[in-house]
Design a protein around this nucleic acid. Structure first.
Lengths: 285, 285
DNA sequence: CTACTTTACGGTATGCGTAAGCATT
DNA sequence: AATGCTTACGCATACCGTAAAGTAG
C-alpha cells in the first residue's frame, strides 16, 4: 500500500513543478522530497520522472500518477471530514421550532434531558418540518399541526393565544375582543423571527403595514416608546411580561389559537422518550 | 492527513473483531495495533471505540469510519494498479493479426524497430480489428482488407495465395488447379489458430470435415504421416517448406488470394512511422 | 552566480516487539 | 487457565535536516 504522505508530495511536486518549491509549501526540506519520490518509484516499480542533472520533471506515467493521486487524497480528506461530521452529528441535536414560545419553554428542558449535547435550533414556518425530520436535518420539531403520517411520533406540548397590545388612546382599545380583519391596513410593530406566525399575518392581514424588527431590543424599545400596536400572547400575559400602559385585547380568529406538537420520527421514539416524558400539554402555555 | 497504514489497521480490526486476530493477519503485534488505534482516534479528534478492560469494540462512529476507510483503501489500491497498468501499457505494443504468415514475418521486424517493448499479439478474424484500434486494445493490426475510414492509416505489406497440398494418390493430384467447392465434403487437416482463414473455410466449404489441430507439432506429424489434404500457401512454398512427397495445387477462388494491410490509427501515424518505413508490399510474400 | 537536484552523514522520533500487568470468561 | 487489551521499556529503522558536490542556465 502506498502511503498518503508520498502521494501528497507527488501532488505537490506536480503542482509546483520543482522539488524546492514543493518542499517549501509542505514545510519540509528538498532532499526529503528527493528521497520520497525515489521511494515512490521504488514501491510502484515504475519510473515517474525524467531526470537531468539539475532538473526533475514528471514523465508520462508520472503525470497520470499525479492525477490519480489526487483521487486518493480526496478520498482521504473525505474520510476525515465524514468521520468528524458523523461524530459531531451524534453529539448534536437539531431541532426546528415553528414559533418562539415553544423554543423559549423547551430549550432548558431539552438541555437538561440531553446534557452535554450541542443543540442546533432553527425557527421558521413548519411547512417543511416533516421533510426535514425524514431526511435527518432535524431530530425533533415543534409543529403547530398534528403530523398525519404514522411515520412520526408526537405529543401535544401546549398552546398559545394571540393578543393585540394597543395604546389606550387607540380606538380599538375599547373593544372587548377583535378580529384580524380589524387590523388590516394598520401599521403594526413586529419581530421578524416568529416562525409560522409570519405566514399567518401575511395571509390574514395582507394590507397591514408591518414594521419588522430584527433585534429583540429594538422591538422592545419601540414598543415601549411608541403607540404602534404589537402582538402579544397568552404566554407573556400569563407571566406578566406585558408593556406597561397598554391594553391587551384577545383576537378571536381561530388562527390565533394554536396548539403545539413536539414531534420526532416514530423510529426515534425511544431515543427521545426521556424528553417526551418531561413534556405534557401544559408545558407551553 | 490520515495515513493509509492506520486505515488498513482499522479495516482489519473491523473485519476480524479483535486486535489480536487483526494483528496476526497484518503480520504485526497486537500492542502495535493498540497504539495505532489510539493514534487514529487522536488524529481524528474523535472516539472510535468502546473500551472495556479486556475488550475493544467499534462504537457507532467507529463503524462508519471503518466503512469510509474502505473507500480510501480501494482508492489507494486503484492508484497503484492504474499507475502500474499505465506504465505497462507504455512499454507494451498490442497487435492483432488476421493470419499466421504476417505474424511470422512481421514479428522480428516489429521487435527490432521497437526494441525493449513487450509485444502482445493476438491472432483472430479481423472483423473487430478496427474497433480494437479505436478503443486502444491494439495499437497496430494486420487486416486482409483496406480500412475505409480516414481515421486509420495503412500500408500494404504483402499478399498470400492458398494452395492445397495432397498426396499423389489423391484424385485431385492431377488437377493443375482447383476450386474450393472441389474440397467441400472432404476430410482436411487444419491448424486451429489461423485467423480469418478459419471463417473463410467455414463459409466456402461448409461440408468439409476439418480435423482441427491445436498444436503445430501434432499438425506437422499428422500431415507428414497421413494422406489427408492440408492447406499450404505461397509463403511456405516459396521457402521450400513443403511436405515431402506431396503435390501443391493452387486454389483459384479469389478468397484464396489475399492482401495484407498493416494498419494503425491515423493519429498514431508518427509513432509507428519507423515501422511503416521498414515495410512494403513485398514484406509478406 | 543562481537555482536546482542528488548524495552523504548524523541525529531523532516514530513505530515495533517483548515482557509484564490486569481484567474477563 | 485462556484470551484479550493496555502499559512500559528498549531497540531498530525510517525519515529528516544540514552540509557538500555537481550541473545547467
Amino acid at each position: 500500500m502506498i502511503e498518503i504522505r508520498l502521494l501528497e508530495q507527488l501532488a505537490a511536486f506536480a503542482k509546483y513543478k520543482t522539488l524546492s518549491a514543493a518542499a517549501e509549501k509542505l514545510h519540509t526540506s528538498q532532499p526529503a522530497l528527493t528521497r520520497s519520490m525515489k521511494k515512490l518509484e521504488d514501491e510502484l516499480g515504475v519510473s515517474l520522472f525524467i531526470r537531468s542533472k539539475n532538473h526533475l520533471a514528471l514523465n508520462e506515467t508520472g503525470l497520470r500518477a499525479a492525477e490519480y493521486a489526487q483521487h486518493v487524497l480526496v478520498a482521504d480528506q473525505d474520510f476525515e471530514a465524514k468521520v468528524k461530521a458523523y461524530d459531531r452529528s451524534l453529539r448534536t441535536l437539531s431541532m426546528g421550532f415553528c414559533a418562539p414560545v415553544p423554543q423559549i419553554v423547551l430549550t432548558p428542558i431539552v438541555n437538561s434531558v440531553f446534557e452535554g449535547m450541542t443543540l442546533s435550533m432553527d425557527m421558521m414556518d413548519d411547512s417543511s418540518f416533516l421533510d426535514r425530520l425524514r431526511d435527518g436535518t432535524y431530530q425533533l420539531a415543534v409543529l403547530h399541526e398534528k403530523p398525519d403520517s404514522d411515520m412520526f411520533y408526537y405529543k401535544k406540548c401546549g398552546h398559545e393565544d394571540l393578543f393585540i397590545s394597543v395604546h389606550p388612546g387607540n380606538p380599538l382599545a375599547f373593544y372587548p375582543e377583535i378580529h384580524l380583519r380589524d387590523l388590516d391596513g394598520m401599521s403594526i410593530l413586529l419581530l421578524s423571527r416568529i416562525g409560522f406566525w409570519a405566514n399567518m399575518h401575511r395571509e390574514k392581514t395582507p394590507h397591514a403595514h408591518y414594521l419588522l424588527q430584527i433585534e429583540q431590543d429594538s422591538f422592545s424599545e419601540l414598543a415601549a416608546n411608541s403607540s404602534y400596536p404589537v402582538f402579544s400572547s397568552s404566554y407573556y400575559i400569563r407571566r406578566g411580561e406585558t408593556i406597561p400602559g397598554r391594553v391587551n385585547i384577545p383576537i378571536v380568529d381561530p388562527e390565533c389559537h394554536t396548539e403545539f406538537y413536539l414531534t420526532c420520527l416514530d423510529a426515534d421514539r425511544k431515543k427521545y422518550a426521556a424528553l417526551f416524558r418531561q413534556v405534557n400539554e401544559r408545558t407551553v402555555l
